[in-house]
Design a protein around this nucleic acid. Structure first.
Lengths: 208, 208
DNA sequence: TCTCGATTTGACCGTTCGGTAAAACAAACG
DNA sequence: CGTTTGTTTTACCGAACGGTCAAATCGAGA
């Protein structure tokens, strides 16, 4: 993890190929369902050669998850307490949807890990993730109490952004089967915008 | 599938135990990741005895998916074109959330199948499911054009209900890790209600 | 009680799994 | 050129996989 070795060109290429092949395999079959042979073939290497770069199947999986978690929470980190409330939340949702569009395999890898009971990242969920969410939930609650956005449960508001955006990556097959030729993401972007504007915009003159 | 055999008590009990064990295994590890030994142990049977009741691993998986798809689409079928628009949609969302609460394993089984690329139920998705969704989307569009609910994309509206409700079953581990001791479903129920009321209620006097 | 079908078990089979050992090969460098 | 380091392959291992088979056991009815 912190070896200062310079990493030759071949090492860089092969390690990247293995991680990409592993991402394909793990994201569609889960950790237990994916095989080293499958990953090796996707990476264009023999199995022993693959194990020359990573000591075990676990090591590949762990490397993928570690690299993923870094970037996965970035959009939430970027939610700025000093920005415009509605704009900040919408921007977060749009960034998250863009990640589903641009990195669907990473999203499915994460989904598989959670479905399996989060054996690897369970500690991260109840540790750093929970802290981050609590912190941002406090920000949201502040905005609500100041009347800048409508009051609702901040945690579930965050969950709803996760659920909606990741759905378009994780259930991509289903979404496309239902929609046919239509590109899901254009419509999704508009709908999500409209949906969250509706819940967020403070009631100026309450009807009824 | 259509044998008229009366099914002895032992058969009924063992088949049920196998299906329950298979549901546990497949819903957390996926088809490829689950093993017959695992299912056999969960069912309290030896592996050969398990294979006396089901001819193969595939057969167990297929039986589970078939039994699931029947009930899985029921709530959407129940959406009544002649009912009150907002009430119908909210009722659908609540029924769907209740299924996530009461049958989380089934939800995760479905999620695993989709994540794997829907190798078994792909045809159902682009066939019967798509037809059903298109039919209900037409109903929704009718309500929108009549001004009974606010205009938005009907397909994505349905997707958003799926995404939000299934999230609480499929990502249960994550949700509970973040929330701590709090029961997720009570808050989820309130939030979903508020969220969809916001997008659905027609604007009487448009502000701005 | 005996019998016959339903059920269960133990032993086993071929394949695939994750992983290892050592030798062969390639490439950089003096 | 030779040597040394980095890379790849061939051959292989024990365990776990899905599944089979025949024998043993059980259980309900005559």
């Amino acid at each position: 993890m912190n070896e200062a070795q310079p990493l030759t060109r071949i090492q860089a290429r092969n390690r990247a190929a293995i991680l990409s092949g592993g991402l394909d395999a793990f994201s569609s079959a889960g950790f237990r369902g994916a095989t080293l042979d499958q990953i090796a073939e996707a990476a264009g290497l023999s199995k022993p050669n693959l194990l020359y770069y990573f000591p075990s199947k676990d090591a590949i999986y762990t490397a993928l998850l570690e690299g993923l978690l870094e970037t996965w929470l970035d959009p939430l980190h970027a939610l700025d307490a000093d920005g415009d409330p509605v704009a900040e939340i919408l921007a977060y949702a749009h960034r998250k949807l863009a990640m589903s569009r641009d990195f669907p395999r990473e999203s499915r890898l994460f989904a598989n890990e959670i479905l399996a009971g989060a054996p690897q990242i369970g500690a991260v969920l109840s540790g750093p993730l929970r802290s981050l969410v609590d912190e941002k939930a406090t920000v949201l609650r502040g905005w609500m109490e100041a009347g800048q956005i409508r009051a609702s449960d901040p945690h579930h508001l965050i969950f709803s952004i996760w659920a909606l955006t990741q759905h378009y990556a994780d259930f991509d097959v289903q979404v496309r089967a239902v929609l046919g030729e239509t590109d899901p993401f254009a419509g999704a972007d508009r709908f999500i915008d409209q949906l969250f504007r509706s819940v967020l915009e403070p009631v100026q003159d309450r009807p009824l």
